[in-house]
Design a protein around this nucleic acid. Structure first.
Length: 640
DNA sequence: GTGA
DNA sequence: TAGTCCG
DNA sequence: TCACCGAGACTA
């Protein structure tokens, strides 16, 4: 046993069914967790295609070396992409080990195809567009090959090489165990399929120059933000699916990107709407929702999932390994396990079970009723109800008024609202406001402002440069809109701010100038457009009775000018952006933030971070500065 | 579930 | 008063 | 081991 094996990297693929075996090997073998540090890589791979694929997911892009006329012919999987810069570093570090050996642990020749077919489904999808590009790139690749030819090669061996060597007490020649040998390609210049290249390069080089997690982080974001993210998104499916082997087209498998030290606060980083890992994230969302509905012991589980999701959404590259995932904040072993399963099998057992769970289905239905949360949903279920019919039949009178409205317009409220309609509603509200008191400014926040193609509701923030104009204005506005028939029901009304504003004193004794911004005047209403499509005269006569327009949920917030920036900031970000923003302010700044203002945690004194000229957006920008945050476009606050 |  | 819902 | 967003409004 004094055999001295070179550093070995163990491929996790195909071990998912047998983690014990994997762990055993890990302890038994001198494994390293970064392939760039390995001389050997073990993995359950037994076809060239698979081997190459696995390498690629690890960030090593290779091209098969044919000289090695291994008797086992296998389709040459052409096009390796670029290699991973880090690899080079490694090589240098280790002197010049010209070869990295990958050992295929799949002992005999297990039906690798099996696993492949398993998750092949998406392959097809990818195939087409990408493959084209692929072949094209191939050409350039080979060219590049000559140029940057390093001489480094990767060899994939069967695991038996290890066991046999152990048995014989010496390192056996690898020839008979070789599954695949590929030349490591250097970073390709083709940006097209190699979104990572840049970042990687930067990360490596950066250590020499500026670096700083932030800068790199920023860089990442930039790249993805553009068309690229979309492109990637479109084929994210395939790429995520491990074994689309046949068609080596799984083009965009990104090399692991050295991670930047991501802060755990999502308000400190950009989070675009789309992520290369959307497919995986959607799986997590399902589990998260199930955790919410399940309640009980899973108390903070949803929060954990939400944080992990927010983090992954901000990661601009397609995740390839658990190692890569584990570097991210809020992503621990649990998520690594889920990712591994998803990556290897294309699905997650727990998710499938959730989707078949009848109880969860019922809870999900109730949960979508406006003003019914997880607790109430469970309560409904406990009462034996299983669908809306039951609720209406057996419990209508027990519902709160708001819930009744929620049930009545269940389908409408679930309907998405296209951007044009959101804008239309916003303008109607603004018009009514200005008709009452000219000079109001409005910003439609929520998902609309974050750029979503449609919204679940409409969040309208209004303010007026003249502090006095916003006092007690909400009710006037509400009345006017009701008169116009737009507002059919008031789901929630709060004029606390104005009330307090009126008598700022009388509370905590003294004059404690806290000012009237503890809460914003706010109304949440059931809205219905009054423009009727062309109809017969009958309807014209009695529009109300037949107005076919869907009911919408509209939030209208009136904010005093002095804290309007907070209102806009507080109503724009996705949930986690907002939660983290609060945590960040409290923990790092000692400030208490909410949409009605910023105060010191200690004495509760108001802190004005947005004072200055300009409109609402200018105030919001100053707020970022005042809070020590880098400005983020609304579209970069999509933390989900 | 994860981070302090 | 305590628990629940909302963005 | 402990905390995890924070405001008000409504209901039992």
């Amino acid at each position: 046993m004094d055999l001295s094996f070179p550093p070995i990297y163990l491929l996790k693929s195909h071990f998912e069914r047998n983690l014990d075996e994997l762990h055993k090997l890990e302890t038994q073998i001198d494994v390293v967790f970064d392939i760039t540090e390995a001389k050997l890589v073990l993995g359950k791979v037994n076809s060239k295609a698979r081997a190459q694929y696995d390498l690629r997911t690890l960030g090593l892009f290779t091209k098969e070396v044919e000289k090695d006329k291994r008797t086992r012919p296998i389709i040459t999987i052409d096009e390796g992409e670029r290699s991973h810069p880090t690899k080079r570093r490694k090589a240098g570090k280790n002197g010049s080990p010209k070869a990295i050996i990958v050992i295929d642990s799949s002992t005999a020749s297990e039906p690798e195809t099996e696993s492949e077919s398993k998750s092949r489904r998406p392959a097809a999808i990818t195939a087409s567009p990408t493959s084209t590009v692929d072949s094209r790139r191939r050409g350039s690749n080979s060219r590049r090959d000559h140029l940057e030819h390093h001489g480094d090669t990767i060899k994939v061996l069967k695991l038996s090489w290890y066991t046999d060597s152990l048995a014989s007490g010496k390192l056996l020649p690898i020839d008979d165990y070789l599954v695949y040998e590929g030349k490591i390609l250097d970073q390709p210049k083709d940006k097209n399929l190699t979104p990572n290249k840049a970042p990687i390069t930067s990360s490596i080089v950066s250590s020499a120059r500026i670096d700083a997690p932030n800068s790199r982080n920023y860089f990442h974001k930039r790249r993805r933000t553009q068309s690229e993210s979309q492109a990637i998104q479109s084929n994210s499916h395939p790429s995520l699916l491990p074994e689309s082997t046949m068609e080596k087209e799984e083009v965009d498998n990104l090399p692991p990107v050295p991670d930047s030290l991501l802060t755990k606060y999502s308000c400190e980083r950009p989070t675009p709407v789309h992520s290369p890992n959307d497919a995986f994230v959607s799986q997590l969302r399902i589990i998260k929702k199930a955790r919410i509905l399940a309640g009980g012991t899973h108390a903070h589980s949803p929060r954990a999932y939400g944080a992990a999701i927010a983090t992954i959404l901000a990661y601009p590259y397609t995740l390839t390994t658990t190692h890569e995932l584990l570097r991210l904040p809020n992503c621990g072993p649990k998520f690594a396990t889920l990712f591994q399963e998803w990556k290897d099998t294309g699905r997650i057992k727990e998710v499938e079970e959730i989707q078949q769970d009848e109880k969860l289905k019922c809870l999900g239905i109730f949960y979508e009723i406006f003003d019914v949360g997880e607790h109430t949903a469970r309560e409904f279920y406990r009462k034996g109800w299983r669908d809306l019919e039951d609720v209406i039949e057996h419990g209508w009178s027990t519902l709160t008024r708001t819930q009744q409205i929620g049930v009545k317009y269940y389908d409408d409220f679930l309907m998405r609202i296209p951007r044009e309609e959101v804008e239309k509603i916003g303008n109607i509200v603004l018009d009514h406001a200005n008709k009452l008191r000219p000079g109001f400014q409005m910003v439609i926040c929520g998902g609309y402002r974050r750029g979503k193609v449609d919204s679940g509701d409409v969040d309208i923030i209004m303010s007026h440069p003249d502090e006095e104009s916003t006092a007690y204005f909400l009710e006037d506005l509400l009345f006017a809109l009701e008169k116009s028939k737009y507002i059919r029901h008031t789901l929630k009304l709060s004029t606390r701010n104005s009330d307090r504003y009126q008598n700022p004193v009388s509370w905590k004794g003294g004059e404690r100038r806290k000012g009237g911004f503890d809460t914003l005047d706010h109304m949440f209403v059931d809205w219905q457009d009054q423009d009727l499509p062309i109809m017969d005269d009958d309807m014209e006569r009695d529009p109300d009775a037949v107005n076919p327009n869907p009911h919408r949920r509209v939030d209208v917030i009136i904010s005093p000018w002095k804290t309007a920036g907070c209102a806009v900031l507080g109503w724009t970000g996705a949930t986690f952006f907002e939660r983290h923003l609060r945590e960040y302010c409290r923990q790092k700044l000692g400030y208490k933030f909410d949409s009605s203002g910023v105060r010191k945690v200690q004495d509760g004194s108001w802190v004005d971070l947005e004072k200055g000229p300009g409109d609402l957006l200018a105030k919001e920008k100053r707020l970022f500065e005042g809070l020590g945050l880098t400005w983020r476009e609304p579209t970069e606050r999509c933390t989900d």
